[in-house]
Design a protein around this nucleic acid. Structure first.
Lengths: 246, 246
DNA sequence: GTTCTAAAATGATATAGATTAGTTTATTAC
DNA sequence: GTAATAAACTAATCTATATCATTTTAGAAC
């Protein structure tokens, strides 16, 4: 018995929003690390950011390239991946509007440690890491916010290690879908809609398994009525039951 | 065919050094984030640190406890572990002299996300996170250093995810031993000596496997002449060949 | 030295999930 | 609308490693 797969949802416009001056100001000011800055200070910060548009699948930077930029997702979403020697890739993070990625500190690593790819059409704001460093030195509370975010990311990363070490693939996939729901989900009539193109390769890359196994388990979850999926969307239809699978 | 296991090494004194005022000053000043401070500034910083001695196996804090402290290893070594619901534990890090752990930012997580255990007799310096935050606000370059360390830890953590996702247990154990050698190893006549008590449980917790499998693979490495081990020590006798096992 | 004990090692068996191979379906291009 | 194609799905087999059970050993206590 299958759940129907022909459940297209009206997809929202995938074109990246234009990064107008006002939009950028608003967005930068909404970033946790710039929240306390005055309008004038924000104006100065805004000046040192540039922005670029990327289409779905475009590579923003590659692992191993000399790193000179800190990036902020102005619109769209970005996935970060690391590649293994044998070509297998792991997906380390999916970033949405307002999140930063790239190189924070010019005194540290000078090469990007992962590849960043636009997951949908996206607008990315960029700042030279040296200039970002200057801002952080000038506004110490901003540094502390960045530090806070880094701690949280480290903790999430360790949670993933814990899961890889001790949980089954089924547990991990349930957890990953729920986390994505929390982060990117929008409530609608069917449940919690995650509107990003999420291939079985992506799921496999996030959970340390193969696309085949990911597919099998997702089919199982669909049969159990926990989720519904299409090529570019996933809906969690029964959160509480899916949580029991962790 | 076995390599002889009766190879006791003269163990160095395991008693924790006393944390005299001068020793603390020296140590704090050597920390990357305080390196640029003046003697007078260091004096102020030193005042807000307290210190405590722990014996082998003592718990410094437990996962889930309210977190109010940032800790620095003054002497000895500390292991950080996270526990799974089913009791299986993963070892997230081993920290040596000069490394920090605990809670950095009081505005963030308010509970410890891991358990810290003294791996040998150790002296730990502690500071209230609020006070540490004040220091970081006062000395922006210190924040950037902390940020740098956090980035590095995040990257190491992601490297581990990559390995758990794509490599065999053998690969991971080889990698882990080499990393420990890099971090804690002391060159001696036999090779690179790692002088910490490292049980098969620890190795299993670091590599996401079981103690039995860890034991089997370590035996294999011993038979191949890559390492020698005792209860409280490990020597890498052939680094280049061990590297080929990654 | 001898005895004791927790850790380590080893052996036998079971299984989750990888691998290989093929079929079906959703979406894009026409 | 139909055709083309890449992703998703499914099935059968294989293997690395977990699990369960037992023996051996290093180092401590005497």
């Amino acid at each position: 018995m299958k759940t129907t797969r022909k459940t297209p949802l009206k997809l929202t416009d995938t074109k990246a929003k234009l990064c107008t001056f006002d939009y950028r100001m608003e967005l930068l000011h909404a970033l946790p690390f710039f929240r306390n800055l005055s309008h004038k200070e924000m104006h100065n910060v805004n000046k040192v950011f540039s922005d670029t548009k990327y289409d779905l699948g475009d590579i923003i930077y590659r692992e191993g390239e000399r790193s000179t930029r800190l990036c902020v997702v102005a619109s769209g979403s970005v996935k970060l991946i690391k590649q293994n020697l044998d070509g297998k890739e792991i997906l380390t993070d999916i970033l949405k509007q307002g999140e930063f990625f790239g190189n924070i500190d010019p005194s540290g690593e000078t090469f990007y440690v992962e590849t960043a790819i636009a997951q949908v059409s996206s607008c990315i704001m960029k700042i030279n890491s040296e200039q970002f460093r200057n801002i952080l030195e000038k506004y110490p509370t901003a540094s502390l916010k960045v530090l806070d975010i880094m701690s949280k990311r480290l903790n999430e990363s360790q949670e993933r290690i814990k899961q890889l070490s001790a949980n089954t693939v089924e547990n991990r996939i349930a957890y990953t879908i729920l986390k994505l729901g929390e982060k990117l989900g929008i409530k609608n009539e069917l449940g919690l809609l995650i509107q990003i193109p999420l291939t079985r390769y992506d799921i496999a890359g996030m959970t340390g398994t193969t696309p085949e196994t990911a597919s099998r388990i997702i089919s199982k979850f669909k049969d159990l009525g926990l989720i519904k999926t299409g090529r570019k969307w996933t809906v969690i239809t029964n959160i509480s039951e899916l949580e029991k699978k962790i």
